[in-house]
């Protein structure tokens, strides 16, 4: 089933493109620490709102231009025509830990420590936007996967059991999901966040947000899974397994679950953007990810400054572009998957 799905994705240009680009994004997120030239909190107060540094080819090697601050009030920088700083690959840097436990002393590229390389400019405290974008992607991209994992596990368990056994269990769980769905999401999120945040540090807040988003998200999955289970439950092949004396648990696992898998893959892909946007919205409102961690949403909220628009610091809005691209990629991939898993939908709608 899954290998077959994979093969079919490869047969469709859109599918290949989206899958490949997403794979690249995730690889970058995984190796963010190595790829980015600076740590996300590495400030340089002498170079606030620095524009992206120009790259030039000089004397057979890649160099960056060096800029001079012309007008501090407007953060106006001008490139100095004769000064270039060579870009070093696998450059020595301050020691850091990859994935929190591998000690490293090099980054993929960098410039001599007297100068700075800002591929996407710097922010209000002179931190490198490019590096922060990469570190931020770790939060923004993983929140969708973890969130989907949690909702799927809860949704499938609750929906599967209530669809399979029916009766009072079904009644209770379905009323519960209705209750959850009736509560307005945003207020619930804000309330939960406000009630709980006092007890957590910034690392745990990430988990808290995933938790809140999935807590709200599982009811929809559970209801759909219940519906699918109901329809499968009365298919003769399930009765056949029962007639053979198969235990309910094995029936759920072996006969129901594989038949739901196609649907689950599709919906998961299509609902990941919801989590990415959810995190962005929360962080934007100031109740999501907090310093010193970073995420795309947080970066966007920090770009909420009149200066950004007045003085055209467009590079501070690149996290928005990153969110946009990721969401589009997931949606497009989800559409391709849906066509594969359920071709009928396409022809009938």
């Amino acid at each position: 089933m899954t290998s077959n799905l994979f093969r079919q994705i490869l047969q469709r240009p859109t599918g290949v493109l989206c899958a490949a680009l997403l794979a690249v994004l995730y690889l970058i997120a995984i190796f963010a620490a190595v790829i980015s030239p600076y740590a996300p909190s590495d400030q340089n107060l002498a170079k606030t709102y620095h524009p992206p540094t120009g790259l030039v080819w000089h004397d057979g090697r890649l160099c960056v231009r060096v800029y001079k601050l012309v007008d501090p009030t407007e953060a106006l920088y001008r490139a100095e025509p004769d000064r270039l700083a060579p870009v070093h690959f696998w450059a020595k840097s301050a020691p850091y830990k990859l994935w929190g436990f591998i000690p490293m002393e090099h980054r993929l590229f960098g410039v001599d420590s007297a100068e700075r390389i800002y591929l996407l400019g710097s922010d209000s405290t002179g931190r490198d936007v490019f590096s922060r974008l990469l570190y931020g992607s770790q939060v923004s991209l993983s929140i969708g996967l973890i969130g989907i994992f949690i909702t799927t596990v809860i949704g499938v368990t609750v929906g599967g059991l209530s669809g399979y056994f029916g009766g009072p269990l079904d009644n209770v769980t379905m009323r519960l999901t209705e209750l959850l769905m009736a509560v307005p999401d945003l207020y619930l999120i804000i309330a939960l966040r406000a009630a709980l945040s006092a007890y957590f540090d910034s690392g745990q807040i990430f988990l808290l947000i995933v938790g809140i988003l999935s807590f709200i998200g599982w009811s929809g999955t559970a209801r759909v899974i219940r519906g699918l289970t109901l329809s499968l439950r009365n298919r003769p092949f399930i009765h056949a397994a029962e007639a053979l004396g198969q235990t309910p648990f094995v029936i759920l696992w072996k006969h129901l679950f594989p038949n739901l898998l196609g649907y689950l893959i599709v919906t998961s892909t299509l609902s990941i953007p919801g989590y990415i946007l959810g995190e962005a919205a929360l962080s934007f409102l100031g109740i999501g990810i907090q310093e010193p961690s970073t995420s795309w949403g947080l970066m966007l909220s920090q770009a909420q400054d009149m200066k950004v628009f007045m003085l055209n610091f467009w590079w501070l809005l690149t996290p928005g572009l990153a969110i946009f691209v990721t969401v589009i990629l997931f949606n497009a991939l989800g559409d391709v998957l849906r066509d594969i898993v359920d071709p009928k939908l396409k022809t009938q709608v």
Partner: peptide
């Protein structure tokens, strides 16, 4: 058509 599990 429905009495055999399509995934096995």
């Amino acid at each position: 058509y429905n009495s055999l599990n399509p995934r096995l």
